[in-house]
């Protein structure tokens, strides 16, 4: 069974088409890298798979069903660190423990087993020594590690990461990569958007280039040889980072329709 299968998926924000006919298949134990210019719908794609956005047409099958009908905790989504207010009253441990919440019904206590899972998750990202630190006092790389640890504590069946390597130090990037590769080796499907085109062969089994639909898909080597990747790569080198001069409503596509109250 494929972990993820999208057929002709369209997602619209009002009149703006963020995803325009996406076809995508990812199997168990595969890490897919998603690259594309700003506004190309990378985050929209992840959010649709996470069940945060409803496709306006097409079929979207995640772990054999629709994202909303999966059991709580099945999908772990790791957003960009700017997505939350880091002055919230919580320690590193508290935030990682939240990963357990979808797995615990209200009548059950936070058990010793839950605590151990949280501690393991912190160890996996090498943050156990900072467990008691307030989250306001973390670097960007440490924030990203906390988010990944929270996802690990959730013990999901699918991991989605939205540009986890943007703006983090090299040590953090390597720590993230090792954790992801370890999960993939255990059979976890992983989807990750990235701007970092240099190390795609080390991160991913599959790579896709998208701009509102999939332009190229295959092994990283295959995609590197294809024209789509080269065009983006050239763009990157000219401008220092990926961008797209004609992206309509730039940024719009990457902004969530899910609003906190």
């Amino acid at each position: 069974m494929e972990a993820i299968a999208l057929r002709d998926v369209h997602v619209c924000y009002d009149a703006f088409v963020a995803l325009d006919g996406v076809d995508l298949v990812v199997g168990q134990g595969q890490a897919l890298g998603i690259v594309g210019p700003n506004g190309s719908g990378k985050s929209t794609l992840l959010k649709s798979i996470a069940g945060l956005l409803q496709p306006s047409s097409g079929s979207l099958c995640v772990l054999g069903t629709s994202p909303k009908s999966l059991e709580p905790g099945a999908i772990a989504y790791v957003p960009q660190v700017e997505a939350v207010d880091w002055s919230f009253p919580a320690t590193v441990w508290d935030v990682v423990a939240m990963g357990r919440f979808p797995r615990i019904p209200f009548w059950r206590r936070f058990s010793r087993a839950d605590r151990e899972i949280v501690n393991h998750a912190l160890e996996a990202v090498q943050m156990e020594s900072l467990a008691k630190r307030h989250i306001a006092h973390l670097s960007g790389g440490q924030q990203q590690r906390v988010f990944l640890a929270r996802a690990l504590a959730q013990q999901p069946r699918l991991l989605l990461l939205d540009e986890p390597t943007t703006g983090v130090d090299h040590a953090t990037e390597e720590a993230l990569r090792l954790v992801v590769r370890d999960l993939v080796a255990q059979g976890m499907p992983v989807l990750m958007t990235t701007h970092d085109l240099d190390r795609v062969t080390e991160w991913f089994d599959l790579l896709c280039v998208m701009d509102r639909h999939i332009l190229a898909f295959g092994t990283p080597e295959e995609v590197v040889d294809s024209g789509a990747y080269a065009a983006i790569r050239e763009h990157t080198h000219t401008h220092g980072h990926l961008r797209h001069d004609h992206a309509p409503h730039e940024g719009h596509a990457d902004h969530p329709e899910v609003r906190p109250i």
Binding site: K47, A50, G51, L52, L70, E71, P72, G73, A74, I75, A76, Y77, V78, P79, A83, V84, D85, F88, A90, V95, M98, G99, F101, P102, I104, F106, R150, Q154, P156, L160, P256, V258, R259, P260, I261
Partner: peptide, 29 residues
């Protein structure tokens, strides 16, 4: 508040991730 303590806490800190992980954030709101 006792029954919803954990989901409310999660959704107060990070509503998007809470919803992605199966917590019904809109109903909670």
């Amino acid at each position: 508040v006792i029954i919803l303590y954990r989901p409310l806490l999660f959704a107060s800190f990070d509503p998007v991730v809470a919803e992605a992980s199966g917590i019904r954030a809109p109903i909670l709101d």
